[in-house]
């Protein structure tokens, strides 16, 4: 049988200890754990996902997206809208003319990133997205969504380098496949 009120005193002791240690210790060992947000910032993890963006190589015209519309179809809340660009002959140019993402609808699930076969859409780290009006500010168009591969490499280095390697390998394979084919065809014409 302990003294009545002993538990309360012990609890007070815990809070007092925490109060004192918060001044002397490191955050991980019982110090002040909070971060004064707008002035101080904690970095985001590499895998962190927020709203999607589009990657281009070099110049914004060299967009990876070919407007296949897979992400548009698979997006669970249906927040993506794509229109194919048509060339002078009226044929699809394998490029998006319109690429809108409604950030007000997007639920950051990352499915567009998973299903994209062209490594073109990825989840961004920028989380400070605010707009005074839903229809104007939060529906992002192609121009605002496009970000360079360098930026992508900066925020997600491991994934970006893996994808760069993959793309390089594919390109080399294509080149290697094109060379014998062209030489063969030229040889063919030669024999004629």
């Amino acid at each position: 049988m302990t003294l009545f009120g002993w538990g309360v005193l012990k609890g007070m002791g815990v809070t007092f200890k925490n109060f004192l240690t918060s001044y002397f210790r490191k955050p991980d060992e019982g110090g002040i754990f909070t971060v004064q947000y707008p002035e101080e910032r904690e970095g985001t993890a590499e895998n962190y996902r927020n709203f999607p963006f589009l990657v281009y190589d070099g110049a914004p015209e060299k967009i990876r997206c070919v407007a296949c519309g897979i992400c548009e179809r698979e997006c669970p809340p249906k927040c993506i809208h794509i229109e194919m660009e048509l060339d002078a002959a009226g044929k699809p140019a394998r490029k998006p003319a319109v690429f809108d993402i409604d950030y007000g609808l997007c639920m950051n699930c990352g499915m567009c990133e998973e299903v994209c076969p062209f490594d073109s859409i990825f989840m961004d780290h920028a989380f400070e997205v605010a707009a005074p009006e839903r229809q104007i500010g939060l529906v992002r168009h192609k121009k605002e969504l496009l970000k360079s591969n360098e930026y992508f490499r900066e925020i997600r280095p491991a994934l970006a380098s893996a994808i760069d390697q993959k793309r390089k390998a594919v390109e080399e394979k294509k080149k290697a496949a094109a060379q014998p084919a062209s030489s063969q065809s030229s040889g063919g014409t030669g024999s004629l």
């Binding site: 302990t2 009545f4 009120g5 002993w6 538990g7 012990k10 609890g11 815990v14």
Partner: peptide, 11 residues
């Protein structure tokens, strides 16, 4: 637990 489990008020 020191803070809570044997705290008389909580009990």
């Amino acid at each position: 637990e020191a803070l809570l489990t044997k705290n008389e008020i909580l009990c």
